[in-house]
């Protein structure tokens, strides 16, 4: 009986020790990312209201630019990445394929945050509307080796802010 326990401990011990860091990082990541996402949603509700109108936030360079008094080039970028633990478990998930939930959450957050910051920048400059919004996504590899367990995605938003 005790021999079986020792055997189980010998197998499970190292396994748990190896998984301790990824599990902690995964858990912390889920908790932290949920928190920042909720904070962003709350901010969007309270502050981001003035540009929610369809005419005031557009990807088209519409005729509104003809009547505008002045303009400014706006550009904001943000770098986001999933946590190391999430990357670790995503590798296992990618063996079977399917939806990578952790990436979904992080990318959704990044894109919403960059648009929120764009609106904030427009407000700070006194713009009344934002036109010709462009969103770009790129992978930034600051890691020295290619098989590094770290990855970051950059979101860039640029647009023309108008004062009409």
């Amino acid at each position: 009986m005790s021999e079986t326990l020792v055997l189980v401990a010998w197998v499970l011990g190292p396994l748990l020790a190896t998984l301790a860091f990824p599990l902690t990082s995964w858990g912390l990541g889920r908790w932290y990312q949920n928190r920042v996402m909720n904070a962003l949603l709350a901010k969007e509700k309270t502050e981001g209201g003035s540009f929610q109108d369809a005419n005031h936030l557009s990807t088209a360079s519409s005729t509104a630019i003809l009547s505008a008094r002045s303009s400014a080039l706006l550009h904001v970028s943000i770098c986001v990445g999933p946590s190391m633990g999430q990357m670790f478990f995503m590798w296992f998930k990618s063996l079977v394929g399917g939806r990578l939930h952790s990436y979904d959450v992080v990318l959704e957050y990044g894109r919403r945050e960059v648009l929120y910051r764009l609106r904030q920048q427009a407000k700070a400059l006194g713009c009344t509307s934002i036109h010709n919004i462009r969103l770009e996504t790129s992978v930034i590899s600051f890691a020295q080796n290619q098989d590094s367990k770290r990855s970051s995605v950059e979101f860039l938003a640029f647009a023309t802010g108008l004062l009409s």
């Binding site: 990082s25 990541g29 770098c79 190391m84």
Partner: peptide
């Protein structure tokens, strides 16, 4: 920061 993920302010 990569332990929790999210925004990497230094890179931003």
């Amino acid at each position: 920061k990569n332990i929790v993920g999210g925004e990497l302010k230094a890179y931003t």
